[in-house]
């Protein structure tokens, strides 16, 4: 178990290292650099050369990559080309906001999705299943900006219950985001719930028709006992991976939703940085998002292992 954990951890670190190289190379390949961004129209001749010398951009790419990578490991992501502030604190604020948004959506969405998935799976082909499954398909297929717009129209313009956009700045304390965060959380919850619920539903249906559930019922085990003891521990395993993907998606910055609600999260900041040609920031965000994906998937694999005795213990029979 520990060996597997260390193995996976090393593999994860290697992945992030390779991704960091690709990100650096991609940004390097773009025309222009931090100095052209800072100097804008004045970026030519003597001034450009001076700026590059000052920022160390005249050195070979490998040296700069090494410097950037070691800095990133120490938590130093460089200086924003846009406003000369340390990227670590700029991105840190946004990351905190994104974590708040993701955390609220997950806290609401995961229990809801699991409950609905189990319910529809157990009530397969009955009215409640058909109704909820249809709603789920709608929630999944309608684009977020449509849902967002409709919700803003109904709840903030028409009913006036909650604000339609977030007005707090990126560095405000977390409490400042309430109640503006309510609508974006609802939009995100709708999309993710539908995905997880459908996975759970089909997995519950599979497990409930398995031989061991039939056996349990022929052993005289009461229905709810079968559901909670024999079926769900096995049926919920596939949900772990879908949840991991969802978490990765939420942490990667849900660009459209953040933009619509003016929520100062990572995705929003990423778009702003791209339009400002603030390449060091783009580079830093890309790295953080990649690391988050790798981390979440690692956590999901370990969770799956912890809950599935077949993965946890040694495979007993040779193939």
């Amino acid at each position: 178990m520990l060996r597997i954990f260390i193995h996976r951890l090393l593999l994860g670190i290697a992945t992030v290292a390779i991704v960091s190289g690709i990100i650096f190379a991609a940004v390097e390949a773009l025309p222009g650099d931090a100095c052209t961004a800072i100097l804008q129209r004045d970026a030519s001749g003597e001034r450009l050369a001076n700026c590059r010398r000052e920022l160390g951009l005249d050195r070979p790419a490998a040296t700069r990559y090494a410097e950037w990578a070691f800095g990133a490991v120490r938590g130093d992501l460089g200086i924003s080309a846009h406003n000369n502030k340390p990227i670590a604190s700029l991105v840190g604020d946004r990351l905190k906001n994104t974590l708040l948004l993701a955390g609220c959506s997950l806290a609401l969405g995961i229990p809801l999705a699991l409950f609905l998935g189990v319910l529809t799976g157990l009530r397969r082909d009955k009215f409640s299943d058909l109704a909820l499954s249809t709603i789920a398909i709608f929630a999944m297929t309608i684009p977020e900006f449509v849902t967002a717009t409709v919700l803003i129209f109904v709840f903030s313009i028409w009913l006036g219950w909650v604000p339609g956009i977030v007005t707090a700045s990126a560095s405000s304390p977390l409490s400042a985001f309430f109640p503006g965060i309510v609508l974006p959380v609802i939009v995100l919850t709708m999309v993710m719930t539908a995905h997880i619920m459908r996975t759970v539903r089909s997995s519950v249906i599979d497990v409930m028709s398995s031989d061991y559930v039939q056996m349990a019922s022929l052993k005289g085990v009461p229905y709810w006992h079968i559901v909670f003891r024999h079926a769900l521990p096995n049926a919920l395993l596939p949900a772990i991976n879908v949840i991991a993907l969802t978490v990765g998606w939420l942490l990667g910055g849900v660009v459209v939703v953040e933009k619509v609600f003016n929520y100062p999260g990572l995705g929003h900041y990423m778009i702003d940085s791209i339009s400002d040609r603030d390449l060091p920031v783009v580079q830093a965000i890309a790295l953080i998002v990649a690391a988050a994906y790798v981390g979440v998937n690692l956590a999901a694999d370990l969770l799956a292992m912890a809950f599935n005795p077949r993965l946890r213990t040694l495979k007993a029979r040779s193939p």
Partner: peptide, 20 residues
């Protein structure tokens, strides 16, 4: 079921709950 009449299934590998 199980108390008066009990089943011995065909494929025990699949008839025993994998999580217990």
């Amino acid at each position: 079921r199980g108390g008066k009449i009990a089943l011995i299934p065909q494929n025990s590998g699949q008839s025993l709950s994998p999580n217990l």
